[in-house]
Structures are given as structure tokens and as C-alpha cells.
Design a protein around this nucleic acid. Structure first.
Lengths: 104, 104
DNA sequence: CCGGATCCCAGCGGATACTG
DNA sequence: CAGTATCCGCTGGGATCCGG
């Protein structure tokens, strides 16, 4: 997914990656601490979680807040544009519901 | 993207793969012959095109029609459910437009 | 203990050549 | 024309280790 093969490819570069949508969903649900995400999302490795969160941050979808406490804590929140991804997920969910009916 | 990590993952298993959306778009545009797709889509290999088309067929998104002529010809068309993917692409396009404004 | 960097390997997909 | 076969490089991501 690195080559420019589609206008929508930037979107899939983000959301097409494994775990990304689930992370976003959990942040939307208010689980916005790194450690919480790691516990709540089954089987995700810390490497992958870090990687996805950084990618989302670099793309302006998520904001990273570091609290310099002991123990340290890092919180992630959706930006405005990040919150608008909801519409995409809704469209996908609706399509998937119809697709399952036909396909199974 | 093989493990069940998100309800939407089946959708991303399909559309998150490289080339898939571009192939669908071209079929929507009426370029539905294998050879036409291979020419129109820049840099795609026949191996990958075959693979994607088969995957789309297996998932009921595309129908394969073989015309037993000389030379042989194979045509791909969207199923009903395949056509409904348009809504997802619209939602993504709209989001992407806003995202680009913020991000660049 | 929290957040993340490093190492390493399976699997995706690109290039090329061949078949009915 | 419409694929399949083979080879192989590269990236994603799981296991493991590290700084504070």
C-alpha cells in the first residue's frame, strides 16, 4: 500500500492497517490511555500499538498528551478531523451488515 | 489483518488491500474486461490483478463472465452488494477532502 | 511498572516466464 | 487473451528487551 495506486489510498494507508480502526473505536469510547488500550485490545503488541498511535498522531487524527507523573501516563485524544472518521465507520458498518446477509 | 481484531476487519480485509479499490472503481467506470483493467491500472501485475478479482468474486462483490470466443474474453461486473460499496467510497472521499485541508 | 525501541521472521505482492 | 508458476525482496507485526 505504499505506491500511489488510488486516490483513496491515503485513507486506506491509515485505516486499512490492522488494529487501527479498533484503536480509534476504543479512543472514541473514552479508553484513551496507552496502558488501558493495551489491556482492552486483545492480543495487540505494544510495538504495534505504539506504531499505530504514532502514525495517527503524525496524520493529525489523534493528539498525544504526556503527563509527567510517577508512574508516567500518556493520553490520546481524537482531533476534530479524527472525530469525523465516525461517518466512514458508519458507512462501512451498514455495508457490512448487508454484505453479511448476502454472503453467509 | 488476518486475526479478528475488529468488527470491521472483514471490510478492511477486502478494501484495505492494495489495488482493490482502484479495481472496483475501474469496473464501476465500465472497464470490466481483464485485459482492459491490466492496461488501465498503472503498474499492477497480472498476478495481483487475478488475485484481487478472485477474492472479490469469492466474496460476492464481483461476478465473472466468461465468453467462449476466440480470442477468449472475460468480463467482470459488480453484484448488487458490490455496487453499494460506492457509499463507503463517497464517505471516504469526503473525509479525505477535509483531512487534506487540515493536514497539508 | 509505563511507554516504547530492537530483533527477527512469515507472508504479501512485484517481476518475469510460461500455458491453454 | 486470460491467466498460472516461480522466485524473492520488503514490510508488518509478534516476541523480547530497555530507560526512567
Amino acid at each position: 500500500m505504499t505506491e500511489k495506486s488510488c486516490l483513496l489510498e491515503p485513507v486506506f494507508d491509515l485505516f486499512g492497517k490492522k488494529w487501527t480502526t479498533l484503536i480509534l473505536r476504543e479512543i472514541m469510547n473514552g479508553n484513551n490511555h496507552y496502558g488501558k488500550l493495551l489491556k482492552i485490545i486483545p492480543n495487540i503488541s505494544s510495538r504495534t500499538l505504539s506504531s499505530r498511535l504514532r502514525m495517527l498522531e503524525e496524520n493529525g487524527i489523534v493528539i498525544r498528551n504526556v503527563y509527567d507523573t510517577i508512574p508516567p501516563s500518556v493520553e490520546y485524544n481524537l482531533t476534530k478531523i479524527g472525530q469525523k472518521t465516525r461517518k466512514i465507520f458508519v458507512a462501512m458498518s451498514e455495508w457490512q451488515a448487508e454484505w453479511k446477509k448476502v454472503n453467509d
